[in-house]
Amino acid sequence: MKTIMWATLTANGNYAQSGPENPPKPEALGDFAAQAQAAGNFIVGRKTFEGMRGNGGPGPFADLDIVVVSKSASAIPGVTVVGSPREALSYLERRGHQAALIGGGADIHNSFLSEGLVDEVIFNVAPVLEGKGLNLLIDQESYRYRHVELLDCKPLGGGVVQLRYAVQDRH
């Protein structure tokens, strides 16, 4: 199964921390929705999922397989909760998906990267500089660098630029 990690970064390379003073760019959100629809699923952490739910309705993702990776969450209506990245991928594979979209949370992204479970990364670079933020980390014990190949680069509008890379040395 092809695994695609999707993230929005600031122009200075941090994870874009959205909030009332810095809402997510609609172009990036639209791209996430399109990527999720194409994959038929997405994987997120509990905190990211809770932030996405807003006022609790199913929203635009009601017909997708949503997987929440959490060590502490119990059952969440309408989604599948698993304890690890490998469990998330196994579940989606059993459901017949050809691709998995890893949609959010620095902890989730870092866990997939550290286990070598990412085939492609999509970075949407937002036109904002952020003084303090979260970063992507790779397993520093076994990998100092991960080589990637640029597959595509395109503007999404609103100053957002999308970079898509293939991970060359997935283990």
Rank of each mutant, 00 (worst) to 15 (best):
G105A: 11
Y145Q: 09
L150E: 01
I138S: 04
R164A: 05
K2L: 08
A88Y: 02
N14Y: 08
Y143F: 10
E27T: 09
G40F: 14
K132N: 04
G131A: 12
I76E: 08
A38Y: 02
I43R: 08
D63L: 06
N22H: 12
A73R: 10
T8A: 15
H97T: 04
G133V: 05
V118H: 02
E120I: 03
M52A: 04
P155F: 11
G103R: 14
G40Q: 07
M1D: 01
S70G: 11
E130D: 00
V160S: 13
A39P: 01
G105M: 12
V160G: 02
A16Y: 14
F123P: 00
Y91S: 05
A100M: 14
Y145T: 03
G133T: 06
E115I: 11
G30L: 13
P26D: 14
S74Y: 09
N41T: 12
T8S: 13
L163H: 06
G116T: 10
P24F: 15
E149F: 03
P85A: 13
L92F: 11
K154F: 07
L113D: 02
G96C: 07
N135T: 02
Q168V: 06
A106F: 04
A100P: 00
V69F: 05
V44N: 09
K71F: 12
E87T: 03
G19S: 12
G157T: 11
L134M: 14
I138Q: 05
Q140R: 11
S114E: 06
L117P: 00
I108C: 13
F61E: 05
K132P: 00
E120S: 03
Q140G: 07
A39C: 10
G51Q: 10
S114C: 12
G116M: 04
I4Q: 14
R53K: 15
G56R: 09
K2H: 03
A62W: 05
L134H: 09
L136Y: 12
E50P: 07
N55V: 15
V44L: 10
V118D: 00
Y15R: 06
T80F: 14
L151R: 01
P20A: 15
R46Q: 09
L151F: 07
V118P: 01
W6H: 06
G103Q: 13
S114P: 00
Q140H: 10
V44I: 13
T3K: 00
S72I: 14
G59C: 10
V167P: 00
L101T: 00
S114L: 02
K132F: 11
M1Q: 07
D139P: 00
I43N: 03
F112I: 04
